[in-house]
Each structure stands twice: as structure tokens, then as C-alpha cells.
């Protein structure tokens, strides 16, 4: 743990540590400046502009926060994103446990099944869910076929259906970090817990779960952001009946042609998701520093 030794052994072919780092970061910084920061700046500018070009005005934001319909869309977006993220943690954890155990026979198959959603286009996947969730879809056939219910369940164009689809869509981003965190746990730590009198439940809650919390946090942050910003799935499964923020932006921009209001909605979405993410990062950062013993 001698930080000094590593410093002295730093990469010698670079002009200097700081200069070298800046050089290596330059391409990424230029790229992000051009494709992310400049467009965001334009959207932010547009959001402060009235339809007739007057500038700066707060009309667009005022319109958003005073209209209960728009606020309900923001609330739904945040709510469904959080619910789907929590659901993803619960679904992903057992899969991650299975994947982290090298002796499991079907590990490769399960890993492949988990990763496939990333490899298929969001459009194709979402249509797949439309077929499954529809009134005559697979899920309803199974429900009536197994006599679990008589009437077809309405899942398409419902929040339940949307949460199911979103959870599946972003599951890999939860499974992978949790699997990595589980694989990092030294098996003898779990044995130590068992022999000290803790059963498997206590060992899970007191040792395994706390040690995988960084993985859960990482996965939750990614999945929450993806949920909040996803467009294709909410558009196809929720559509206009249960609009999400992304759908509202699309509608205001391309249907209503009110680019300035669409920009304001985009800024609201960006601010609300990033507030939640930043709060989460600060909390988990503090937690990790505490665990590292810096406090």
C-alpha cells in the first residue's frame, strides 16, 4: 500500500503525468464536446426560447410545471424507472449468483440468455413483447390455458406491461456488475461467516449483500438511466395511452412541432434523472469511503 512507490514507477515515456493524461483523454473529450455538449447546449438554449424567438423566457418550463398532465408524465417516468430498476435487482441477483458459481453446468447457456437482449435491436425486442403481452398473446394464452384466470389480462398499453418489458430490456446491465461483485468475494470469507455460527440467510444479508452493494449500485445507476431515457419500448408498449417523458419529447417535437417546449421537456428529464443519479453516487461514494476506512 505504498502510494509513493507507484508514483515513482509511473509511466516514463510520457512528458509528465498530468500532460500525458490530458493527451490520452483528449480524443474522448473532443468527441464528447462535439457530439454531446454542443447539442445539449443547443437544446438548453432552445428550451429558454419562445416560439417567436424571444429570449430568454421561462414560458416553456412554466407551462410544464403548471400542467398536471405533464407533471404526471414526469412522475410516471421516474416511478416506472425506479420500479423497473428495483425489479431488475431482484430478478438479476439470483441469476448473478448462479453465474458466479463456476461449477454450474448451464452457466454458459444462462450467460448467453442474459446477454442476448443487448444483441437484438430494441425495436425487434419491443415488438416481441407486444406479441407476448397482447390480448391473444403468449402470456394470456398461458394464463387462460393454466386456468389461472378466465379473462384475458390487459398488459399491453399498461404500466405493468411496460415495467415487465423495461426490466427484461435492461437486465444484462444489472446481472453483469452483480456477477462481477460476487466473483470478487473470497470464498473463505463466506466460510468464516458459516463457521462463526451464521446460517446461509444471515451470511447472505450480513456478508454477501453488503459486499456486492457496489455492484448493485453500479447496475442500478446504469439501469435507471436507461429506463428513464428509453424511447422505443415505452413508445411501442405504452404508446400515447401511458406516455413517458421520451414519448412526450418525440410528440412535442415531431407531431406538435414545438421544438422549444420539446427541448424544455428534455431538460427537465435530464435534470431529474441526473439529480437522482448524482444523489445515489454521492451516497454510495461516502459508503465506500467509510468501508475503506477513510472516515
Amino acid at each position: 500500500m505504498t502510494a509513493g512507490a507507484t508514483d515513482k514507477a509511473g509511466i516514463s515515456w510520457l512528458p509528465g503525468r498530468q500532460a500525458g493524461l490530458a493527451l490520452l483523454l483528449a480524443p474522448a473529450l473532443v468527441y464528447y464536446f462535439v457530439v454531446l455538449f454542443l447539442p445539449q447546449l443547443e437544446i438548453a438554449t432552445a428550451s429558454l426560447m419562445a416560439a417567436d424567438g424571444r429570449f430568454p423566457v421561462d414560458t416553456n418550463f412554466r407551462r410544464f410545471v403548471t400542467d398536471p398532465f405533464f407533471l404526471s408524465i414526469l412522475w410516471r417516468t421516474v416511478r416506472l424507472s425506479v420500479i423497473s430498476t428495483l425489479l431488475a435487482v431482484i430478478v438479476a441477483y439470483p441469476i448473478a449468483i448462479y453465474l458466479s458459481q463456476p461449477w454450474r453446468r448451464w452457466r454458459a447457456v444462462v450467460a448467453f440468455a442474459v446477454i442476448t437482449p443487448i444483441m437484438i435491436s430494441a425495436v425487434a425486442r419491443s415488438y416481441g413483447w407486444v406479441i407476448i403481452l397482447g390480448p391473444a398473446g403468449l402470456l394470456n394464452q398461458a394464463i387462460t390455458g393454466l386456468h389461472l384466470g378466465t379473462d384475458p389480462q390487459h398488459l399491453l398499453y399498461t404500466e405493468t406491461g411496460l415495467v415487465i418489458a423495461l426490466t427484461h430490456l435492461h437486465l444484462p446491465f444489472m446481472v453483469l456488475p452483480i456477477t462481477a461483485a460476487l466473483q470478487q468475494i473470497d470464498p473463505s470469507i463466506l466460510r468464516a461467516s458459516r463457521i462463526l455460527g451464521a446460517g446461509s440467510m444471515r451470511t447472505f444479508w450480513r456478508v454477501t449483500l453488503p459486499l456486492t452493494l457496489p455492484g448493485i449500485t453500479a447496475g442500478a445507476t446504469i439501469v435507471f438511466c436507461l429506463n428513464g431515457s428509453s424511447f422505443v419500448t415505452p413508445a411501442l408498449i405504452g404508446g400515447a395511452r401511458i406516455p413517458m417523458m421520451s414519448f412526450l419529447i418525440y410528440q412535442q417535437g415531431l407531431d406538435v412541432r414545438d421544438w422549444n417546449f420539446a427541448s424544455a421537456v428534455a431538460i427537465v428529464l435530464l435534470l431529474s434523472t441526473s439529480t437522482i443519479v448524482i444523489a445515489h453516487l454521492i451516497w454510495s461514494g461516502r459508503r465506500q469511503r467509510r468501508a475503506a476506512g477513510a472516515a
Binding site: S188, R191, L211
Partner: peptide, 13 residues
Amino acid sequence: MAMVFQNYALFPH
């Protein structure tokens, strides 16, 4: 019983 492990196996958190 109780056990002392080669790599200590203390709970890091």
C-alpha cells in the same frame, strides 16, 4: 466451532 484461515478471511466491510 470456529476457524482461523490462512488468508485471515476478515469481513472487509
